[in-house]
Design a protein around this nucleic acid. Structure first.
Length: 481
RNA sequence: GGCCCCGUAGCCAAGUGGUAAGGCAGAGGUCUGCAAAACCUCCAUCACCAGUUCAAAUCUGGUCGGGGCCUCCA
């Protein structure tokens, strides 16, 4: 079984064959840095983070490039509103982006280029397009002439005639065809600008990604990704300007992640249902958010809601509880020299799921089965005397940790993670840890005296506040639910 | 209007030709002083209709319902 990926360009799953054996060049459209990232950004970046991780797990040497677009109309507008320079604004939100991605537990890409540091490459690319007759200068702007590129719209599969009827030329633009798009924009007073053969100006949106991807990955590379909303116009235009300039195929596989809805509605500022990553992390653990995102296939829409996040929290807790049980059981048992193929079997199922277009939802389903097996084995009589069972738990635990890492999950110490979650949830109950501890001690005393009425009353009172007691051989623990 | 996607159990969610993964919730059981947790068992014929096929959730056509893109957007 080999990796198959859904390619937006062909509209179907294809076997993944990198241009160079063993190596993958991957470019993901990052953000335009003018505001805090929202959960849509979180999803896109988490999705491509696991794609990056999985490709590395498969043994590929991955060159993963994710850009910052740090010059753009929206940045200029926002900077003007705040009375600071575009550069200051961009730097502020680059920092914020880095912090957010870090708190989400993302691996840093191989490179994170900035548009403003690749102006020369942008100008070079625009020049090539002008030289080849695919672009024209007009009043200091340079536009791409879409009718000169026959493959235009091959990615988004739209119809030029129908698109044209809806397209407009904005005031101040000098397009020959309403569908043409800007490669270079003449600077207006007060805007950041760079000298160019067409006068002072700045890159249009789209061209910076072509310039940066080619700078680090070459004129043809393997994977280009981003959110579905980038298919048109951004990625369509990237293809046009890149292939138009180089006469080479640009990206081989186009991967697009689905949207995030909020309470079944499209997330938008006007609806007031716009959550930033920072907002969410106030309430939910970053790993819970990641787990939630990965329980759906990356191309499907997901619905962000309190209920769904809480379900994810419960699901992730199940993993940590299972890992905790496994660790405790193994600690309490002698080492086993027996072998077990439980771990390898689980890994095979995981791979099969992931090979099918990164089906993390199915993969996690298989991991749940591993947890169940661990829980079963660990509670079976004679576990400690069974080298086979000990080996099975050992291998399953190792597999869960190894495969979890491919998804960016289960990286915490289970006891610590569970404790942290419990303490966080405890705040909602109005109780303190000391309150719970004291209640547990009182109940223990009652139980010793066989005063079960009192002991049960204490337990019920805590349960009513959301704290569930769990009696075990090692004493009584508790969890908030 | 054009293009595209979706509709699977109470909820979330995989599955795209061979009689439906997984999680949550629910029912019964084991364990427990009783519980909880854990484990075991049970719980769907896949929006609807008509076709193709030996065989369809999975293909085709249609109906109903929901959503997205076409302007900035992950």
């Amino acid at each position: 079984m080999s990796l198959r990926v859904y390619n937006t360009l062909s509209g179907r799953k294809e076997e993944f064959q990198p241009l160079q054996p063993g190596k993958v060049g991957m470019y993901i459209c990052g953000v335009t840095v003018y505001d805090y990232c929202h959960i849509g950004h979180a999803r896109a970046n988490i999705v491509f983070d696991i794609i990056y991780r999985y490709l590395r797990y498969l043994g590929y040497e991955v060159n993963y490039v994710r850009n910052y677009t740090d010059v753009d109309d929206k940045i200029i507008k926002r900077a003007n509103e705040r009375g600071i320079s575009s550069r200051e604004l961009a730097e502020e939100f680059i920092r914020a982006f880095d912090e957010d991605m870090d708190s989400l537990g993302l691996l840093p890409p191989t490179r994170q280029p900035k548009a403003t540091e690749h102006i020369d490459q942008v100008i070079g690319l625009v020049q090539r397009l002008v030289d080849r007759g695919l672009a024209y200068a007009a009043n200091g702007d340079v536009y791409f002439a879409v009718e000169k590129f026959p493959d235009y719209l091959k990615l988004s599969k739209r119809n030029m005639d129908e698109m044209r009827s809806g397209a407009r030329i904005a005031p101040g633009e000098h397009k020959r065809n309403p569908m043409d798009f800007a490669l270079w924009k003449a600077a207006k007073p007060g805007e950041p600008s760079w000298d160019s053969p067409w006068g002072p100006g700045r890159p249009g949106w789209h061209i910076e990604c072509s310039a940066m991807s080619m700078a680090y990955l070459g004129e043809s590379f393997d994977i280009h990704g981003g959110g579905k909303d980038l298919v048109f116009p951004h990625h369509e235009n990237e293809i046009a300007q890149s292939e138009g300039a180089t006469c080479q195929p640009y990206a081989k596989y186009w991967l697009h992640n689905g949207f995030v809805n909020v309470n079944q509605e499209k997330m938008s500022k006007s609806l007031g249902n716009f959550f930033t990553i920072r907002d969410i992390l106030q309430t939910y653990d970053a790993e819970v958010l990641r787990f939630f995102i990965l329980t759906a296939h990356y191309r499907s829409p997901i619905d962000f809601s309190d209920q769904n996040l809480q379900e994810a929290q419960v699901g992730l807790s199940r993993f940590y509880e299972g890992l905790q049980s496994a660790a405790e059981a193994l600690d309490a048992s002698p080492d086993s020299s027996a072998e077990s193929k439980e771990g390898a079997d689980l890994e095979a199922r995981f791979r099969e799921a992931m090979d099918d277009d990164f089906n993390t939802a199915a993969a996690i389903g298989h991991l749940f089965e591993g947890v169940r097996t661990i829980n079963r084995l660990v509670t079976e009589k004679g576990f400690r005397k069974s080298p086979d069972k000990i080996a099975a738990v050992r291998e399953l635990r190792a597999a869960l940790l190894r495969l979890g890492d491919v998804l960016g999950l289960f990286g915490s110490e289970p006891a610590e993670w569970l404790q942290r979650l419990n303490l966080a949830l405890l705040k909602n109950t109005g109780l303190t840890e000391a309150d719970v501890q004291q209640a547990i001690e009182e109940r223990q005393a009652a139980r010793r005296d066989k005063d079960f009425a009192r002991s049960d009353r204490i337990r019920d009172e805590l349960a009513a506040k959301g704290v569930q007691l769990l009696d075990g051989p090692q004493g009584t623990t508790w969890k908030v639910r």
